[in-house]
């Protein structure tokens, strides 16, 4: 419970810092909403011309985007530090967090916030509410699945950014892998088969971020729900393990900075 209160307090503080530049904050949020909307317009254009592709329609892609955008938005909005971890490791900037009472990883995750993430989350929720015609049960399921997907995205970001403990520089690689995850997670699962599908449930876990949640929203299945839960626990375990082992190799940059 104290972890939830701690995270909430950090997010609130980050929000207040971001809102100090009100114009920049709201333009970042609005920009991201428009960015996401443009993608949905692309799919609307596509499905207007081809109403169904292998059983997939506009309604399905709306659900894919609502879960994907909400989860990614929450990930960078609440735990934006996960996405900048590689550069901070490379510059030896973790010293400050090593002496704090809470777990180092938790501090690092919540210490940064990308305001545009709130645009993603807002877009995802609004699109789901207005275009997916949800029942109250659907709405509750959507919230739960979005939180699970958020956990997997943050875990993935931690795992790939932590490679910087070994490689020194991993920003570009981690950015590309995150881009790959987002790209694959926002397209219909039916496009991918064979070895690519295996990759999408392992190295780039788009299957856990989008495909299983979307199928559960369509039709609840305890078997798939269990697989999703197991995948989530595994992804958290892998991320924490990689970070913990990597942290032993960390070398300080001896930076002198003022934190106000």
């Amino acid at each position: 419970m104290s972890v939830v209160r701690f995270t909430g307090a950090y997010v609130w503080a980050n929000l207040r810092v971001a809102l100090a530049y009100r114009g920049a904050f709201f333009s970042a949020v609005l920009g991201m909403v428009i960015n996401d909307a443009i993608w949905v317009v692309f799919w609307w254009l596509f499905f207007t011309r081809f109403p169904s592709v292998d059983g997939y329609g506009f309604h399905d892609i709306v659900i894919v985007w609502s879960i994907g955008a909400t989860a990614f938005g929450l990930a960078v909005g609440v735990a934006g530090g996960a996405f900048t971890l590689a550069s901070r490791i490379a510059r030896g900037e973790l010293d400050f967090y090593l002496v704090l009472p809470k777990p180092v990883i938790l501090h690092l995750l919540v210490s940064r916030m990308d305001p545009s993430g709130w645009g993603d989350a807002l877009f995802g929720v609004v699109v789901f509410a207005f275009l997916a015609s949800p029942t109250p049960t659907d709405a509750v399921t959507f919230v739960g699945l979005s939180l699970v997907a958020t956990t997997i995205i943050v875990s993935y970001a931690v795992a790939i950014n932590s490679l910087a403990f070994w490689t020194g520089r991993a920003e570009t690689l981690s950015d590309q892998l995150i881009f790959g995850l987002i790209t694959f997670a926002t397209y219909p699962e039916k496009l991918f088969t064979g070895a690519v599908k295996v990759v999408l449930y392992t190295v780039v876990p788009a299957g856990f971020v989008a495909y299983i949640p979307v199928s559960l929203l369509h039709e609840w299945d305890w078997g798939w729900a269990s697989i999703l839960l197991a995948g989530t626990v595994a992804s958290v375990g892998v991320a924490v393990s990689i970070f913990t082992v990597g942290l032993r190799r960390y070398q300080s940059g001896n930076l002198t900075t003022m934190r106000a």
């Binding site: 114009g23 920049a24 333009s27 920009g31 428009i34 960015n35 443009i38």
Partner: peptide, 12 residues
């Protein structure tokens, strides 16, 4: 204050 969101909208 910040033109990055306008650039984003332009590109999209």
């Amino acid at each position: 204050e910040d033109t990055s969101s306008i650039y984003l909208i332009y590109t999209r």
